[in-house]
Design a protein around this nucleic acid. Structure first.
Lengths: 195, 195, 195, 195
DNA sequence: AATGAATGAGCGTTCATTCAT
DNA sequence: CATGAATGAACGCTCATTCAT
């Protein structure tokens, strides 16, 4: 009989199993980043992880399930960024904030694009997306308010739009010279400097 | 192809044929908008146009061909917008510019997303996308320069990012209250007001 | 309502109709010769005849029907050749016979190949093929017998094979220098000269 | 392709896989022989092999790929026959040679017909065909020359035509009594006996 | 007598998922 | 724990034929 599937958390994985799981998750992240979630083939993932289809379905219920897993990681990182953005002890500069934002996007851009494209039906994945978005938005709103700058929802949305899309341009068109410093300058000037 | 395929322009269509072509093009635009280009099925399109697969391929060479057609329309509209933006006789306000931008996005968002996702291989379609992007970017740069505002490439890119993504949020999440006026206000304040 | 189909013979065609029918038949012969019967598209035929699908089906019941028509012509020409081969008044030389055989093949090779490939189900078409084959075979047998050469069925079959296939090589590979004279020499030497 | 496609040779097939591959190849040969390559449907092949479409594409890249595979086998067999024909140690009689020729045709007639019909575009398949043809032609030429018989290109071509087409008549019309012995007699008499 | 338009069954191919070992 | 093998529904596209004018 086929091995009954168990979610990774509830499995009592030994060292080897943990290694395989990690290989698969990493491979999925890479492949999703390269080709996008929808264009990614399970076969690409298992080849990148140097394992088999059978093994993939031992650790994940479906292709969507890997996305859910990665979405969780991504949401956690953005949650942490949101927390750090409003943490006075950290006192992150705008440039540092943009750098962190870009860093998360580099690791999880494919997941974020899948969220935004709205063609994923899985509720948990979408909830992760909403959460991450809201937390960052709230943190940006706080920062704008603290700086005495306009922080109405549309302004916050516009800032999110600018950041998300710049991160995407930067990741997908390496040639066009978008970097955290320059984008931060635009943000400073256009959003924080606008009294 | 059974019927010698001719591009819609070079065909001598009668009233009936023109109606069918229009139905198909409109249906494709709708279906692409709803599901995205890649997830859109030719079957969805022909069902929406109340016609058959055979008829679809009478008017288009392939699914990609419809996208190319729509991309041409979209590029033309953006080209016109770029021209109007820098035409002193028109003297478009920022709000009017954003309104026009959003209008084109409403009609052609699916094409624009397909451009940006970079999973389309057709050269002409991609050329249309590059052209549209460059023309708008150049026009925005001119307007910024004329206003005495910063207009370096990164700033222009950030403005494009803001506009494109806001248009998308607005089109795909009607509930969140993004409208041309408010976005124009952010743009005024953040990009044109920043001396 | 659609014009009821009538077979070409039972139609009372006016000059224009006869011209159209001739154009279609000639076009079909050309297209079949170029692409082979199965690979030939009705669209190729109507385009070559500068007419429309509707018109095609006004004169023929189906694609197979055109083949049947051409098969009749071909069988008639081969019947005539068979008659001439055994007609003392004609006293055809071997070279002349081969020339005539090649000539018919040039005009009707596609039909002959369709016969031989045995993927045509129409009874009349196949009957034409059988008739043509038998008549030529009988005539060749008579000529061999009159020359005092072996004329058993296998020999006759081998001669037919040689002629048919040489005609095909010649028609389809113009470069390889097969001509009636040389083939006739082989036939003379190998079949008629073999006492 | 989901399963990374690998050509059958470079795959490390286990017993089960080898069995399936053999079933598929054999089924393809049969179906091609029955219906001809172009009329053969992948569905016919997988039904004959009692497997699924998915499995077919696990072992072959396309329908054309199976033909290429079979063409390779066929060319190899004809190459071997050509070698044996001119090998003094084998001293094949004409009858034995014709028998061997017919044997290969029985196994690979469909491939040979596909070669001759010239509607295959794959370069490797066509190269196999040309190779096989040239090798047999060269061997026949040598044998004719050694026998002191005419061996000009047209004669060799005529002999090839006779053999190929006789093999086809024999395979496709079992009723008409063509056998290797009788054909060999014709060849002896008509080609080798003609001094 | 002629035509442009429409049809839909059927093709080759893909790929997420399941099975057997 | 892992794998190679198998599946089949669904896709994009073709083309002989019929329809409406």
């Amino acid at each position: 009989m086929t091995e009954a599937y168990k979610s990774p958390e509830e499995r009592d994985l030994r060292a080897q199993g943990r290694r395989t799981l990690r290989r698969l998750t990493a491979a999925a992240a890479t492949v999703f980043a390269d080709r996008g979630y929808h264009a990614a083939r399970v076969d690409d993932i298992v080849r990148a992880a140097r394992t088999s289809h059978g093994t993939f379905y031992l650790y994940f219920q479906s292709k969507e399930d890997v996305l859910r897993e990665l979405a969780g990681e991504c949401a956690a990182e953005y949650g942490q960024l949101a927390a750090d953005l409003t943490d006075p002890a950290q006192a992150l500069t705008v440039t540092e904030g943009v750098e962190r934002f870009f860093g998360v996007y580099d690791r999880h851009g494919a997941v974020i694009r899948a969220w935004m494209e709205r063609h994923v039906t899985d509720r948990e994945t979408n909830r992760h997306g909403r959460d991450a978005f809201m937390q960052i938005a709230a943190a940006l709103g706080d920062r704008l308010r603290d700086a005495g700058a306009p922080h109405d929802p549309v302004t916050i949305g516009a800032l999110m739009a600018l950041l998300e899309r710049s991160a995407y341009y930067r990741a997908s068109r390496p040639g066009i010279g978008i970097d955290a410093g320059s984008v931060a300058a635009v943000v400073e000037r256009g959003f924080f400097g606008a009294a």
